[in-house]
Design a binder for these strands. Sequence first.
DNA 1: GAACTATGAATGAATG
DNA 2: CATTCATTCATAGTTC
Lengths: 186, 186
Amino acid sequence: MDENMSGFCIKSIRGGGGGGGGGNGGNNKCGRWNPTTEQVKVLTDLFRSGLRTPSTDQIQKISTQLSFYGKIESKNVFYWFQNHKARERQKRRKVSIDIDKEFIRRDHDKISSPKEVLNQVSSEPARVIETLQLFPINSFDDESGAEKLRFYANEFCCKENTRGFTYTVGAEMDHHPPLDLRLSFL
Amino acid sequence: MDENMSGFCIKSIRGGGGGGGGGNGGNNKCGRWNPTTEQVKVLTDLFRSGLRTPSTDQIQKISTQLSFYGKIESKNVFYWFQNHKARERQKRRKVSIDIDKEFIRRDHDKISSPKEVLNQVSSEPARVIETLQLFPINSFDDESGAEKLRFYANEFCCKENTRGFTYTVGAEMDHHPPLDLRLSFL
DNA sequence: GAACTATGAATGAATG
DNA sequence: CATTCATTCATAGTTC
């Protein structure tokens, strides 16, 4: 696939001859990645442990480990974290908006802290894991003894992106924004 | 759930056949550039021809020409090349890793050639291009963008040398002979 | 089986 | 150039 398809994605034709045999266990060959429960569990554990944006190395290793449970590619891991993070943030944002509204609405009534409500949906416990027993896979113990499970406990020293709210106010389209930034020096 | 694909899911009206030259100005009201298929095709052709990091002039010209197909700004071209290059690299990195991994994994099972594996990981026709594809001979079978490409290509060649043969896309073309034919127009 | 949901995949836009 | 964020497209699954 190239950029050529960037408009429509008519690739998998599994429907043509009766797409039998689909399903989780037996992965389809052309479709998109369908993670097994084990894979999801591991990924989720990693995420909950604080890993948000694994480096390429981490992705590699995670992918390799997860391949034990089924077919998987590095990009799947990459996308998984990308999506998971984004959607959590998204959910959070949405919630906070709701809270905000709710808060405002209730403001006439009583005062309650938005934080309370927030905790209901996304209670993110402490992260910063030093070590974590994640891959109980031994039957397939690899040869890379050196860097074992050390990879994921590194580098994501949470700095909790304080970016938070970059909501683009540009509701209405181009009124000729600054244009280029980077291009100006080119 | 969303308004765009109510019922049917064809990507938003990216010009495509209907859009013709008018550009997709009709649809997007937002801030994000939504390239038409023609625009993508041209950009892709340029990329495949070896252009990786267009200069400001090139960006300007490309942008100008592409504006025929729809609304576009220079920065869009700039970003497009940035992203495309980065992702090409990234993809290749991830994919090759996966190939290795898959290969190794399957090695315990059955012996399969790397080519086969490649086909599995990437729906793209197996061709781990190590060398730049300079002459996309078959990229012109599709009439639409190709014709036009030649059209605006002329613009470029008339930089200051009316020769129209020596313009090297330069920059990224390290140790690659002069790209005649296709690129000579640049 | 259409509508809806969850989520994999892609990509435009930035930032460092 | 790499990394990251936001938004959107596409589809496997589920529900009614």
